[in-house]
Design a protein around this nucleic acid. Sequence first.
DNA 1: TTGCAAAGTTAGATATATCTAACATATTTT
DNA 2: AAAATATGTTAGATATATCTAACTTTGCAA
Lengths: 228, 228
Amino acid sequence: MPTSIKENYLKALHYLSLQSSEISVTELGNAMDVSKPTVNVMVKNLASKGWVVHEKYQPIRLTPEGKRAAAKVIRKHRLAELFLYQVMGFGWEEVHAIAEELEHVKSEYFFQRMDEMLGQPLFDPHGSPIPDASGHMPSTHYILLSQVAVPCKVVVKAIADSSPEFLIYLNEKNIQLGTELTLIHKEAFDGNLTVSFNHCDKAILSQSVASRLLVDSVSETTKSKKHR
Amino acid sequence: MPTSIKENYLKALHYLSLQSSEISVTELGNAMDVSKPTVNVMVKNLASKGWVVHEKYQPIRLTPEGKRAAAKVIRKHRLAELFLYQVMGFGWEEVHAIAEELEHVKSEYFFQRMDEMLGQPLFDPHGSPIPDASGHMPSTHYILLSQVAVPCKVVVKAIADSSPEFLIYLNEKNIQLGTELTLIHKEAFDGNLTVSFNHCDKAILSQSVASRLLVDSVSETTKSKKHR
DNA sequence: TTGCAAAGTTAGATATATCTAACATATTTT
DNA sequence: AAAATATGTTAGATATATCTAACTTTGCAA
C-alpha cells in the first residue's frame, strides 16, 4: 500500500504521462512542488516498489503496475468528487479540494458503497472518466476546444482544469457539461473564440479558456449519444 | 493544526481522562501502542503546542485547549460515524473503523455539510454525544449496566465499546439503543445478569457485557424523555 | 530506612520525506 | 568543438515519529 504522499506522486506521474510517457525529474518536481533531489530519492523508492522504471540520467516512466496504482487513487478521487456533488450537494467548484483528502482513505468499503449509491457512475462532475476498481483507466477521445476548426458545433464534455477559479468562471458564463457551443469566429491574432449557446447566450472565450474545455463535435447526423 | 498522529494522542488522552485527569506515560503508551520514550517525546511536543501540561516525573494532564482540540477530533469521528450509518447505510459495527480515517480530514466544509444533512445530531450510532463545533464535549450521566442494582428497569442509552465484535454480539442478541431491559436477577458469584426485553426475549448478560452497556434507569413515573 | 521494582527519562538509531549546496552529465548555442 | 546552460545526482542536514538500551527517579515493602 502506498503512503498518501506516494499516492500523490503516482497521480502526478499519471497526469504528466498524458503528455508524454517519458517524464523528467524536473517536470515531476514542478508538479509536486518539491526539489529535484527530493524527486530523485522518491523515484528510487517508487522504482523499488515496481511503480516506475528509472535509470540514471534517463526519463522516468510508469510501469503497468504503477499505472494501475495511479488509476486506483484517481478512481477514489473521482468517486469522492461525484459523491460530494451528487449526494452531499457541494458545487462542482468545491469538490476537488475535499476529494484530494478523501482519495487517501484506505477503506475499500467506503468507496464501494459510494460506487453503489451512485450507480456505478462512469464520469465525475467535471466529465473525467472514473477508472474501474481493478485500476483500469477508461480512454476518452475528447478534443480541446482550442483545437477545433471554426465554424463548427461542439458539446462540452469535460473540464481539463478543476480549479475553483475556472469552474466559477464557467458558472458565471453559464457553461456546463453538455452545453452545446456554436463556434462562430476564431480571432487569428489571439485565438479568442466567439461562441453562442443555450439558444441566446453569446460569449468570447479566450485561448486560455478554450484550452481548458474538452469537447466532442456534434455531427450533423446526430448519431453518437453514448455517455452523459 | 495537529497532525493526524497528534490527533490520535489527543483522543487517547481524552478517553484516559475519563478515568482520571492525571495520566501516566505508561498508560498513554499502552493506549497508543507505542513505547514510553515515544510518549515522552510526543508529550513534550504536545506540551509545546499547549495541549498538555507535563513536568518531569509528573503525570500528564490535558489543558483546556487540549480538551477542546480532542473534542473537535471526536466531533469529526462521531459525525462521520453517524453519516456512514444514516446516509451511507453502513452497520453500526462497521462505522468505527472508517470514521477512524475520516476524522483526520481537514476540510471543515465536509463536516459542516454532514452536520447539516444529519440535522445537527446530538448522538452518534453508539449513543455517544457529538461535541459542538467549538469543541465543547457534552456531558452524559448514563451508568454502566454492571453497576445497576437488581431488580430494576433500564434503557440502553450508549455503548462503551464500539468494537465490531461487541456490536455484532448485540446484533445477535437483538439489543439496540433504546432497548428496555428488565433486570431480573444478578448472580453474586460472577455478576451474570438475567434480563428480559422486547416483551419476550430473555438473555443472560455476562459481567463483561454489562460493563460495556451504558443505561439510564426507567423511572416508574415515566418523566424524562429528553434524548433519543 | 534501605533496597528494589516500577515508572520515567536520556541517548542514540531508524524510516520517511523533505531541504540546500556542491558536483556531474547532457544539451544547446555560438 | 568549446563554452554555457539546463538537467540530474550525491552528500549531508532537518523534522516527525518511532524504536532499543541504558540510566534515573519514585515509591512501596521488607
